[in-house]
Amino acid sequence: MESLEQIRDRLLARFPGASITLVTNPGPAAEHSLLLSAEHARKIAMFLRDDAALQLDYCSNATGIDWPDKEVVETKKVAVPDPAGGPDKVVEEKTTRLEPGYLESVYHLYSMALRHGPVVIRMRTVNRSNRVTLPSLTPVWRSCDFQEREIYDLYGIVFDGHPDLRRLLMWDEFKDHPMRKDYVEPDDFEWEPTPHGAVLDRAKTHYPAPEVKP
């Protein structure tokens, strides 16, 4: 199989307006991925499936990832002139910046005909609100049907063009998206004999902390 850079270049030549970025994977697995812009994603997916050299006819895995907002602290060294006339003082200035979070969907593609893979493609939403949309790839690979419903259920990404987008695992009346990192579980813990960590914090709200023997 051609390398991911070659695939990216071919895609850029074929779809001039699309933004396709190579996301490198620093781990030992070195499975790099292509970040697709949402508006061209389905056309690109069709191309990946039908291209004679790639024939990625099998979408094995589709999943979501939640990246919450995070605070980035940037330190900048600023030279402040000394009012006494000496040499400039170097002062570190810290600025905190809120990097907006996003939701991501990841697809692992293989070719059953040519027996190669994986090609990993990913798409990102603009923010983490409740009505964020990404194009559905179910019309391209039917195997995304249940998996995209699961992502919708657990992460809250609304897939545009999905034929039957309902919750897959939780009940229909359920309002939350439990796999998001900021999801708060309903508090129905009971007392545990040796609570620790988050369980202990929750137990404290129900019962006084157990007295530990000296």
């Binding site: 994977n25 620093p26 781990g27 030992p28 697995a29 070195a30 499975e31 094995s60 895995n61 692992h108 994986p118 990993v120």
Partner: peptide
């Protein structure tokens, strides 16, 4: 603690 990265 594995290094940052992803694997399938």
């Amino acid at each position: 603690r594995p290094k940052p990265g992803e694997a399938y």
